Amino acid sequence: MVTLAFVSSPYANRSSTPVAKAPVTQAQASSEEMQTGNDQIAQSQGHDGSIPFSQINQVIQERCSVCHSATPTHAAFQTAPGGVVLDTPEEIKVNVPRIVAQTVTTKVMPLGNLTQMTDEERTLIGEWVEQGAQIQ
């Protein structure tokens, strides 16, 4: 049995932003594709330096929604673990403190890093939250 702890973070009292789903597994993504994704992260910030929600949503859908969806695609889950569903921007927004605690602060999610979340993606999520976690 796996038990996940909710860890408090400096982002816990800030606004959260939701995410859509479009999971990609490690088997589907080549290292070249993953590098291209990291390059896109570095290049896609807005003119004012803000991180667009579309970029965060892409990360969450690829790395988190495999399990945290109303219809998980991972074979081990029939329902989202802990009831945490990250299919919509609103669901993402509500779960921002958990997302930060699990992916940025403790780095325990994705579980076993099954979906190969990169340090750059973790940093991106943290910066997006610091900027107010806007979903529009």
Rank of each mutant, 00 (worst) to 15 (best):
M1Q: 08
A5K: 11
A5S: 10
A5H: 09
A5T: 06
V7D: 05
S8P: 01
S8I: 00
S9F: 02
P10C: 02
P10W: 01
A12C: 02
N13H: 06
S15N: 14
S16F: 10
T17V: 13
T17W: 11
T17P: 11
T17Q: 08
P18L: 11
V19N: 14
V19A: 15
K21L: 13
P23V: 01
P23A: 09
V24N: 14
T25L: 11
A27D: 09
Q28C: 06
Q28P: 12
Q28N: 08
A29G: 12
A29V: 14
S30K: 09
S31V: 12
E33K: 11
E33T: 11
M34H: 12
M34V: 15
Q35R: 14
Q35I: 10
T36Q: 15
N38A: 15
D39T: 12
D39Y: 04
Q40C: 11
I41A: 12
A42D: 11
Q43C: 06
S44F: 04
Q45Y: 08
G46I: 01
H47G: 13
D48M: 01
D48R: 00
G49D: 04
S50L: 11
P52N: 03
P52G: 06
P52L: 03
F53N: 15
S54E: 08
Q55L: 15
N57M: 09
N57Q: 13
N57V: 02
Q58G: 10
V59H: 13
I60H: 11
Q61K: 10
Q61H: 05
E62L: 06
R63K: 15
R63H: 08
R63N: 07
R63T: 05
S65F: 03
S65N: 15
V66T: 12
V66K: 09
C67H: 06
C67S: 04
S69D: 10
S69G: 05
T71C: 04
T71L: 06
F77M: 00
Q78P: 00
T79V: 06
G82D: 03
G82E: 03
V84K: 11
V84G: 01
V84L: 09
L86C: 04
D87Y: 01
T88M: 07
T88F: 05
E91D: 10
K93A: 15
K93P: 02
V94Y: 10
V96W: 05
V96M: 12
V96Q: 13
R98G: 07
I99E: 02
V100T: 02
Q102Y: 09
Q102E: 08
T103V: 10
T103H: 04
T103P: 01
V104W: 04
T105Q: 09
T106D: 02
T106S: 15
V108G: 11
P110N: 08
L111Q: 09
L111V: 07
Q116Y: 08
T118D: 07
T118L: 11
T118M: 09
D119N: 13
E120D: 08
E120W: 01
E120N: 07
E121C: 04
E121D: 04
E121V: 07
E121I: 06
E121R: 05
R122M: 01
R122Q: 04
T123C: 01
L124C: 03
L124H: 10
I125N: 01
G126S: 05
E127Y: 00
W128H: 07
V129Y: 01
E130P: 00
E130H: 03
Q131T: 04
Q131F: 03
G132D: 00
G132T: 02
G132Q: 04
A133E: 03
Q134L: 12
Q134F: 13
I135E: 12
I135W: 13
I135K: 14
